[in-house]
Nucleic acid binder design. Structure first.
Lengths: 141, 141
DNA sequence: TTGTATGCAAATGGTTTGCACCTAT
DNA sequence: ATAGGTGCAAACCATTTGCATACAA
């Protein structure tokens, strides 16, 4: 167990809070916000400041142990995914459950809804990069 | 011109501010935040409160005249797109220019980068909907 | 020991809202 | 005239940060 946590926090100190936070993450049934994770901890009688939760989430995301999975009411959502390869998330707006979907840039996503039983009611997609003009400008410098 | 604005604000009053705000939107070279739009207005000597800008953006988005195009430094980005059908946005992280991409759920997105000259360095995708379990539960009620 | 983590509270920053005033219709 | 729009300032809320204290190494 400790081995996995070491990797999750990538070479930092393993404190009681970080251990508890990682445990709470695995207990979350789906995508969760920092506040929800803190609530889960407090519900289990574990003391951990919100700031600490945020700092831990930042570490866990940096190591790739958890990933951002969109937003819900202005709050960032995270999810712990074992999936190694690059992928995307299907977040159930009712229960927060998360399904993994192959990256649309690498293949066809159509049919995913059918195979997972997910009914997609909406989605938010933003792709970032450099446009032709800026790419040329940078390349020229 | 007035006709287009009427549609943009869908049956509300057409005030000086709303006219100026819509005009400023068309002047933006790419994706923009509420603050950037306000700056554009103020730069042109147009008085318009930030709250008013936000309210106008909400209206414009409701009518479909503009769309959300991801986030930049915590601020929501918008873009005015003539494209009618459902699509997604490619936001240049250098200049904010926006390119339209077909929805990955409807077809293959691969090759879009090549055709637009856009180099995708990263993307943020979140799909929302109802998972099989929740869908069944709702259907049963 | 010692540098990193924690906790609290205060600061930040985008966005929203209450309310009195203004104005398109 | 009057419902809807505007401006300002205050309120909100998620997230971050400063700093003194606690603790893993």
């Amino acid at each position: 167990v400790t081995d996995e946590l070491r990797g999750a926090y990538s070479a930092s100190r393993l404190t009681r809070q970080r251990r508890e936070i990682a445990a709470a993450v695995t207990r979350m049934p789906g995508a969760f916000s920092a506040a929800q994770l803190a609530a889960e901890l407090h519900g289990n009688g574990v003391a951990a400041g919100l700031a600490t939760v945020y700092r831990a989430l930042t570490s866990l995301e940096a190591s790739g142990w958890i990933e951002k999975a969109g937003q819900r009411e202005g709050a960032a959502l995270f999810t712990h995914c074992a999936v190694e390869h690059h992928h995307h998330h299907l977040v159930c707006t009712t229960c927060g459950r998360v399904e993994h979907a192959p990256c649309p840039l690498e293949g066809v996503l159509a049919g995913v809804a059918e195979s997972t039983g997910f009914v997609i009611t909406g989605h938010d997609v933003a792709l970032y990069g450099t446009c032709a003009a800026c790419g040329a400008r940078e390349g020229a410098q």
